[in-house]
Write a protein that binds this DNA or RNA. Structure first.
Lengths: 114, 114
DNA sequence: TCATTATACTACTATATAGTGATATCACTA
DNA sequence: TAGTGATATCACTATATAGTAGTATAATGA
């Protein structure tokens, strides 16, 4: 029945999994305006060094960021700005859901007055 | 520094987390062409009954699907087709990455001939 | 060469959750 | 009202992974 092969769906799920951690989204936000080295990323995200390093590895392996040594430090940058489109779509959706909830609350409040 | 508040980013991460499981994507695919009841969903996805029920609850709580009792059975349907846009974007990206990898392999192969 | 700084890796703990069998609940029917 | 089928929930196990302390490696400068 499923037209889409499991293997493809698994890859999509894995991609979403990379984006499903607050810490990694924080790293991506830190890189939104351009490349930064690990120290800068740590400062901006308040992640521990080892932890930041681990997340950067995961993001690199997923092809979402790109690693570039420069002297003693390592610069990371976004490979694919598409991820911000993804986030934007999700944000819009969450906003709509909030509005609907708020409207439902109002309706409920109206009911109470009967 | 981070313009985006942690709380908003957390919600985005949570939304991605819901989409980061193969089983849940399978359920969503099963619902792509319209509402189905739990039995049909189980048949199409080969998930266990308890497991399917759990995933349907998670998808419902995330506002991605909608639950509707109809007699003895319960029908679920997609609330927001936007998720398929998300999947499509990710698929496109994965395709590009595959192409790049394939090209890199070719380049490596060319190198070998020198 | 030694010291220092930046980054990565290893080993570990704690937590979250996917999957599953058993049970509960609910709607319908004989 | 008892029985049946559909769905949800509970309790449990197994697994994955986020965070962290400590250590290793690599580049630079004294």
């Amino acid at each position: 029945m499923s037209q889409i092969p499991i293997s493809a769906l698994t890859q999509v799920a894995d991609y979403f999994k990379v984006l499903s951690e607050l810490s990694r989204l924080q790293v991506l936000c830190a890189l939104k305006d351009g490349a930064k080295n690990v120290t800068e990323i740590i400062e901006e995200t308040s992640l521990g060094q080892a932890n930041a390093s681990k997340h950067l590895k995961i993001l690199t392996q997923a092809g979402i960021v790109k690693r570039q040594s420069q002297g003693v430090s390592v610069y990371y940058q976004i490979t694919d700005p598409m991820i911000f489109d993804l986030c934007e779509l999700v944000c819009q959706r969450l906003k709509i859901q909030l509005q609907e909830q708020s409207q439902a609350l109002k309706d409920l409040d109206g009911l109470r007055q009967l």
